[in-house]
Simulated assay, not measured.
Amino acid sequence: MYRPFSFATAAVALLVAATPAAAAYPERPITLVVPFGAGGITDLVARATGKALSEQLKQSVVIDNRPGAGGNIAAEVVKRAKPDGYTLLFATVGVLAVNPHTNSQVRFDSAKDFSYISSVASTPHVIAVGANVQAKTLGELVKLAQQKPESVSFSTAGVGSSPYQGMRILQDTANVKFLHVPFKSGAESVSNVVSGQVDMTFEGSPQVMPFATSGKLRALAVANPKRLPTAPDLPSTAELGYPNLISGSVSGVVGPAGMDESIIKQLNAAINKAVSDPEFKSTLAAQGTEVAASTPDGFRKLIESEDKRWSALLKGAK
């Protein structure tokens, strides 16, 4: 039987054909861009998150380390990516909320250029010195640095890294000046203290504690309100008289601005389900890291709040 062609019928057919494809996300591997080198705390948590997401979404998640410029390179890569949910950034507060106030070459706007998906984890920082440094307590380290400004060097994964933020707080709180030596990752930062090239580090507990346990580093304090369950003998900065010296690496996932809300919701649900899994929690806990999932708006508001805080703290630091 002859049936006349109808544009309306064709449009409906196209819509129906397109719907399964849209609903099939993700139908190919997802790239999770990491702003620092392999081996650092951001990389470790990103890889654990990528593995959990892969299991939740039934699709491969490829880790793409793009270190450099304190995380700006990775952020710009994701900013320019197609907002289809296949290129995501494992971001830190340092990259999104600190870099804009320390680097005049930042080419992204944290408020406008990204789709916020969820926070993931929080890792407290540990202050540690090389075995040959003549300081056995945090107080002794501060006195050592006060004797001669910039005589004590410290390493981080760059100005945009959260350990750098912690050192800024320490310097402002103790009215002392250390010498900053940046590297591409937290792992490099710590290894150069172990080798004696740098005096101290202010890094995530997963990188620091194994070396402290073996005696290659001397851990002085954890920048936390309380001691770590995994290191009960290590005093907290709060109990040592530095209640404002609280520092850690808060990380999460964002994508390019303009992502479809349904994809954002799907990714957020997958992350929240992943972090509630006992195995995922155990994996992060073994690294001294706590899970910290959120809503997309919750992560956005966290970055907005930190942006204001670091704007005041780092005023004039660019």
Rank of each mutant, 00 (worst) to 15 (best):
N192L: 05
G186K: 09
K136I: 02
Q134K: 15
A285M: 08
A131P: 04
R218V: 12
T49F: 03
L313I: 14
I263Y: 02
S214W: 05
K315N: 13
V126S: 06
P225N: 03
S104F: 11
G160R: 03
E261N: 14
A293W: 00
L245W: 14
E203D: 14
S294K: 07
T137D: 08
N132Q: 14
A8V: 15
A75V: 03
F299Y: 13
E55F: 01
L57K: 11
A270L: 08
A48D: 13
V250Q: 12
A257L: 06
V98P: 00
E55H: 07
L89H: 07
L44F: 02
L141T: 01
A18W: 08
A52N: 10
I303H: 04
T92A: 10
T295M: 09
G252M: 06
A22E: 09
V129Y: 00
K226R: 14
R218P: 05
G40N: 10
Q197A: 14
P35I: 01
G50C: 11
A46D: 07
L57P: 10
G166W: 01
Y164T: 03
P29R: 06
Q105T: 14
Q197G: 02
S195D: 11
K136F: 02
N175Q: 15
Q287I: 06
L53A: 06
S110G: 15
V291N: 06
V120C: 07
A174I: 00
S247W: 04
S205T: 11
T173Y: 09
K58S: 15
A121L: 08
A187D: 12
A221S: 13
T156C: 09
V95G: 05
L96T: 00
T213E: 15
S151G: 15
V61I: 07
E55R: 12
A231C: 03
G160N: 03
A257M: 06
S110M: 12
D233Q: 15
R218H: 14
Q165G: 14
L44W: 00
F183L: 12
P278T: 01
F90R: 07
R218E: 07
H125E: 09
S185T: 02
E203K: 05
Q171H: 00
E203N: 11
R227G: 00
A69S: 13
A128S: 13
S282Q: 15
S110N: 13
D297M: 10
L234H: 02
D199L: 04
A10I: 09
Y242G: 02
S311E: 15
D64Y: 06
P243V: 04
P235G: 04
N192F: 13
S262Q: 12
A22P: 02
A69V: 03
